[in-house]
């Protein structure tokens, strides 16, 4: 699986960073930054949770 982030839609709520800081970060303006778009097994489940929590639906999953 791959994670996609739409920085134009992101509202900087930061829920993704709280959920999986190994995958998600925020820039100085609060907008999502992907640290990797292909999380390993352990991080993948939490990255999926982050996608479901994102209030602006800026995150999505692309299944390979």
């Amino acid at each position: 699986m791959r994670i996609k982030a739409d920085t134009g839609v992101c509202v900087g709520a930061g829920q993704c960073v709280l959920t999986e800081p190994a995958v998600f970060d925020q820039d100085d303006d609060g907008i999502v930054v992907l640290l990797t778009d292909q999380p390993g097994d352990q991080a993948a489940a939490r990255a999926r949770e982050a996608v479901g929590l994102c209030p602006s639906q800026a995150l999505s999953i692309v299944e390979d």
């Binding site: 509202v11 900087g12 930061g14 960073v17 709280l18 800081p21 970060d25 925020q26 820039d27 100085d28 303006d29 609060g30 907008i31």
Partner: peptide, 15 residues
């Protein structure tokens, strides 16, 4: 809304 929120959201990042 997006412009107004982006003007302050950087103050509230997790970091």
């Amino acid at each position: 809304h997006s412009a107004a929120r982006r003007a302050v959201i950087g103050e509230f990042t997790v970091k």
